[in-house]
Write a protein that binds this DNA or RNA. Sequence first.
DNA 1: GTTGCTGCAAAAAGTTTGCAGGACG
DNA 2: CGTCCTGCAAACTTTTTGCAGCAAC
Lengths: 131, 131
Amino acid sequence: MERVTQQKLAIAAVLEAAESPLTPPEILTRAAKLVPRLGVATVYRALRSLRKDKKIVVVEIPGEPPRYETATRGHHHHFFCNDCRKVFEVPECPAKLAELAPPEFQVQDHEIILYGKCPDCRTRRNVSAAD
Amino acid sequence: MERVTQQKLAIAAVLEAAESPLTPPEILTRAAKLVPRLGVATVYRALRSLRKDKKIVVVEIPGEPPRYETATRGHHHHFFCNDCRKVFEVPECPAKLAELAPPEFQVQDHEIILYGKCPDCRTRRNVSAAD
DNA sequence: GTTGCTGCAAAAAGTTTGCAGGACG
DNA sequence: CGTCCTGCAAACTTTTTGCAGCAAC
């Protein structure tokens, strides 16, 4: 039913190669190098299709546009740098999160976002302020 | 500088009285009962102003429109019911969250969202399935 | 009496949809 | 070769902005 097209392959490849989650415009720009006449609509349609197949996941940071990343990296969370506004992966995951909710609630999943300064931005600040 | 207007008062009152975070259209509908000729633009402008004053906070659940709630409830997190799509408060907050990130990262804040079934939806399911 | 705030409408920004032609199987 | 997918443009949705009049201080 679902066809394997150059566009979907290109978009999946772009996300696979990405160092961090990408926004639709970023995906369009990068994938257009592989499929020149690529349009926005196709990007959105491909993202929906890939998401339905559980090949990618959405990363939503409050106040930020939705970003997409491959599902091949497994369960993890994200760190958002308040300075450079980049998204980083956080591999750790606390086990007891479900206990946060009152017992009448049935917890099936969770999402954690950490905010702060990434190593680069922290160093930059330290260097200019300290030495 | 910032003026105290009927519109802002009405919107703040609506959020104060709300049982859960509200979307801009919901806020407009409720506040319009207090200030009849209220428009969307004013709601958005008031929300930005109240947010700047730290009187309210945004609650963003992936795939859901932004919601707003009063800041008077202090630090807490949210539970999103996958069935009825309502948002609930979670008072607990794990202390050691900052340790999740690699040590080079400076964690300043965090956000947790739990997903699952709220008591009502869980009961409904249990009743029809079990007894 | 100033000047910021409001309501309305128009504009932006982001995402979806309709349609004719092209690529996949 | 049929039909799903694509590219383009138009439609939608959500949020922002411009402007004349009004209300807060």
